[in-house]
Design a protein around this nucleic acid. Structure first.
Lengths: 193, 193
DNA sequence: AACCATACGGAACTTGGATTCCGGTTGTCA
DNA sequence: TGACAACCGGAATCCAAGTTCCGTATGGTT
């Protein structure tokens, strides 16, 4: 996206940020990642600002809305999960890859409260689509079904259902045990009998 | 505390409510059931009051806090589910009873937004314990395992995990399909192979 | 080294809801 | 049928965020 011939850039492709602004933007994102991860989506912008050692106004200049700041971070997460999916596609077989993806995605969720809250409360299928996650998951499932390791009636729609569930479990029941158990049950439910 | 023979009544065992007060209390509960069911736990007390054709102050005299009002209603729900559990214990076998219980409890959840929100976001194990649900579920599972229809490593703890999950799914993905699919998967995961 | 568009900080403002208050009603009981 | 404690209604108050504003500071440029 930063290539020399950045010619046909869409709509408002602003001039580069001033050095201090660029620096602050990074600090804000970093702070927000940390704050949202451990306070959840109800964390306050003031806290983010404080942690970034920046005034609230500055946060708002970079992200006009709390929602937008949160969104930026959620996208990063999905991006990361999409990366995991790419890894899962390298697995020796579809079922293994599928399991690997669910486990690692859940693991990431477990480390971030806001992610759990967002996943279990808002439908993010658009983001999932955009970052290619939908397609990769679908591919993984197609393979697994072809191999006969996944029940034939499983559908890509089962994945959000599962992720929403784990996310909720993580928020409500503390500890690793419950959500791991949950994923295990679900995978058993999806395995071909 | 002010009655003449305020003898040995525990703490605050108040005198009977005045007729109008009793009537209002009922209207408030009825209104609250409806409002919370379709707006969720973020519904406003003002709406409850309006629907009950009563002033906000009156709502607050009966339930000093929104939290307490909500709690009263949530307890009613769990009570009802406990009733379902009693029915499930009559089923011809443990597995059937267990499935019956999960399906009917989920069905009830589906009809009440606040119930879903509460179940998926707060640990209500105390209430579950108090109304006997915990014990009955446990009994059902013991039977099913003895019959060999439920996997041996299933535990009563799996039930809240499942209920939390469905509740979250109901909130996030609209329609009957997703949550039904979810329960079906989970039951398959719990069935003995 | 002066200029100014960009940025910054953070106090002040706004808003949405919960909760309180208090003058006016109404059951209940003598 | 008074008298009064128990109630009621709903405007006013309080509060916790999110968001705006504006005087000041600072990179980048000539």
């Amino acid at each position: 996206m930063t290539s020399p011939a950045a010619s046909a850039i869409p709509v408002h492709e602003a001039r580069p940020l001033r050095a201090d602004a660029r620096r602050n933007r990074e600090r804000i994102l970093k702070a927000a990642r940390a704050v949202f991860a451990d306070q959840g989506i109800d964390a306050q912008i003031d806290d983010v600002a404080k942690r970034a050692k920046v005034g609230v106004g500055t946060v708002y200049r970079h992200f006009p809305t709390k929602e937008q700041l949160l969104d930026a971070i959620v996208r990063e997460h999905f991006e990361a999960i999409a990366e995991m999916a790419r890894g899962a596609l390298e697995a020796e077989d579809g079922w293994t890859g599928f399991c690997q993806l669910l486990w690692s995605a859940a693991e990431r969720n477990a480390a971030d409260r806001s992610l759990c809250e967002v996943m279990s409360a808002r439908d993010k299928s658009d983001v999932v689509e955009e970052c290619g996650l939908a397609a990769m998951t679908s591919e993984l499932m197609t393979r697994a079904k072809a191999e006969g390791t996944m029940r034939a009636d499983a559908t890509p729609l089962d994945v959000p259902v599962i992720m929403i569930g784990v996310s909720a479990v993580m928020q409500t029941l503390p500890g690793e045990e419950p959500w791991r158990r949950y994923i295990a049950l679900m995978l058993d439910g999806l395995r071909a009998s």
